[in-house]
Each structure stands twice: as structure tokens, then as C-alpha cells.
Design a protein around this nucleic acid. Structure first.
Lengths: 166, 166
DNA sequence: CTGCTCATGTAATAGGTTACATGATTGC
DNA sequence: GCAATCATGTAACCTATTACATGAGCAG
């Protein structure tokens, strides 16, 4: 597929746990072509925009397999800017902190609803038995998203209350 | 304080939501000095290693305050490598996926216990009333850590079961 | 004719990791 | 004598973001 296609697919599938800008995708595809992981063909059609279509090579497939065969040894590191801000909020005014937490609450609630819509669209969240093997893994990534957003929202409510009580 | 001190403090307070390597700290402190946010004095004492001590300037304080005054508009983006791996696990053997998830389970359980020890050391998690304003915010960051690790562990158990049933 | 989507790229900069490199002191 | 801790830094590289830049087609 093309860089543009890849970007669309990323935005509609992995965006909640891994994202990339189009500039990164285009440059990385070119790099991967130099490394022999993919090949490309430039397609010019009348009435259609130009596209550069990439195909994965055997080397590319082997590289992906090689990566999957080396299991993660560490936990993914976390960078949560809101916690940095909260950590340094000792001198801030409570109402400003509360406003910021409430804004985050709205965002996380919206995200939770998006995940809930996805699971509803996939069928019943309690019966993923009928799904194909590949879909199950994608379903699992959404499940972590759901749990994460629920936990985050509970924490936001608890923390808003805490700041209100100061 | 010195770059070394800063690294120690980061490692023992914010490491669970924000970390930095010493190389990054040293280079950024130098940069901040050029920008006038901090000043430094090099200290040579007999029987003591050399240290470069930094002091924040009024400009530096204003910059921090300015940053805190501009509330976050977006959610912190997430990069969760384990989910990327799971997403592409359609062709992997179940027992390898399970082994990887179980290893992550051990890591997250350990992390949860660390957070629990911290809250126990801070007193009773249910009575943070006596804490000072600043400590409350730090306490809040640990609370999100607790909720996050609990949610993550529940998801790991659910997902391990799902893969076992394939 | 205006704005949106499709489609591709480059350049400059910022942020972050790993490896290289040195040297003193302290405890076993 | 050796390992660990204290203490500082640079260099190379990789990863990622933001801005710059172009152009076609389509819908209102």
C-alpha cells in the first residue's frame, strides 16, 4: 500500500496505542526501501493523484518475524505530562488545577465512548468467541484501552475531589 | 542542585511517569544556562568529587510558571509497544505470546507492589488528610500509578486466558 | 471560487538513547 | 586489589514533530 494508505490505517486502528505523522511514514518507507525491506512502484493514472505503492519483500517479512520473536524484556516506559504538571502544582491555584483536570476528564470520557462504540460495532464485548484469531488480538488492544480510560476517569474524579477539598 | 542530584531525585520520585538519562539532564542544564534559566558554579573540594551546582534564576522560575499557566489541551499520547506486538501477533505461536504476557505480568505486579509500598510508607492510603499540599499532588501521581497497574494486570490475566483458549 | 480530501515529499528542529570516556572515593 | 558509588561530560545516532511546499480533483 501507499504511505497515505498506511497513515489512514494507523489512524483508524492503532492510533490509541501507536501513532505516526505522515512525514515520518514517508521518510521511513524510503529508508526501508534502501534497506531492502520493501520495494515500491510509482503509479501515474489519469484522473487519479500520483501514488507510490510499497510491497513488503521476503527480507521485510523476515525482519518483522525477527522482531516478534524477540519478546519484550521491559515494561513500556510512561510519559504522562499531566502528572508532571500535577507534581509541580504546589504553588498553583486550585481552581486552575481543577479546570485542567475537568478538561482532561472530558477528553478521556470521549475517548472511552469511542472505545465503547468500537466494541459495540464489533459485536458483543462479552462474546468475542466468534472472532477470527487476528481480530481477537485487535480486540484485546481495545480492551486495554477501555480499562485504561475507566481507571483514568476514576482517578480524575478522585483527584478533582481532592483538590476541591484543599 | 547538580545534574547528578537531579537524576537521583527524578529516579526516586517521577520515574514512574517521567524519566531522563543523565546525558539528557547534563546537556539540557547547559542549554538552560545559555538561555538564562539557570546559573551554575563549579565546586572543587578536597576529598570530594567535583560538582557543578545549578541555581534557578527569576527567568527560570517565570518560565516554569508560564508553562504551568498554559493548561494541557490534549491527552498525553500513548506508545505501548506490547500492544503493537499483540496487534501483529496473528501469525505467532500462542505459547510464545503467553510467555511474553506472563513476563509482563510479573513486571507489572512488581511495579504495583512498589507503589503499594510507597503509599504504606506515606501513611495510610485512605487518610491522606494530614499531608501537606505539595505531598498531596505527589500522592495523586502514585494513585494513578496504582489504578493503572491494577487495570493493566486485570487486562493481562484476561488476555492470557483469551490466548490460552485459542 | 473556496474549502476539503487525496497524495507526496523535504527541511529544520527537538527530543531521546546508547556508547564512549574519565577520574576520585569508599567499603569489602 | 576490586567493585560500587559519586560525579561529569561528549558523540553518534535514532526517533519524532512542526513547518514548508506542491498540486489535482470534487462538492457546494
Amino acid at each position: 500500500m501507499s504511505g497515505y494508505d498506511l497513515k489512514q490505517i494507523l489512524d483508524h486502528s492503532t492510533a490509541h496505542f501507536w501513532h505516526a505523522h505522515h512525514s515520518q511514514i514517508y521518510t521511513n518507507l524510503r529508508q526501508m526501501e534502501e534497506e531492502g525491506l520493501v520495494t515500491s512502484q510509482f503509479i501515474q493514472e489519469e484522473g487519479q493523484p500520483n501514488r507510490r505503492i510499497y510491497h513488503v519483500t521476503e527480507m521485510g517479512k523476515a525482519a518483522l518475524k525477527g522482531w516478534l520473536d524477540r519478546p519484550m524484556q521491559e515494561m513500556s516506559p510512561i510519559k504522562e505530562e499531566l502528572l508532571v504538571r500535577l507534581f509541580f502544582s504546589g504553588q498553583r491555584e486550585s481552581h486552575q488545577i481543577i479546570a485542567e483536570l475537568q478538561h482532561q476528564r472530558r477528553l478521556h470520557l470521549q475517548r472511552l465512548k469511542e472505545y465503547e462504540n468500537i466494541t459495540v460495532r464489533m459485536g458483543d464485548e462479552k462474546k468475542p468467541i466468534e472472532l477470527e484469531r487476528e481480530s481477537r488480538f485487535w480486540h484485546a488492544t481495545i480492551q486495554l484501552g477501555l480499562r485504561y480510560e475507566k481507571a483514568y476517569l476514576e482517578w480524575l474524579d478522585e483527584t478533582i475531589q481532592m483538590v476541591e477539598s484543599l
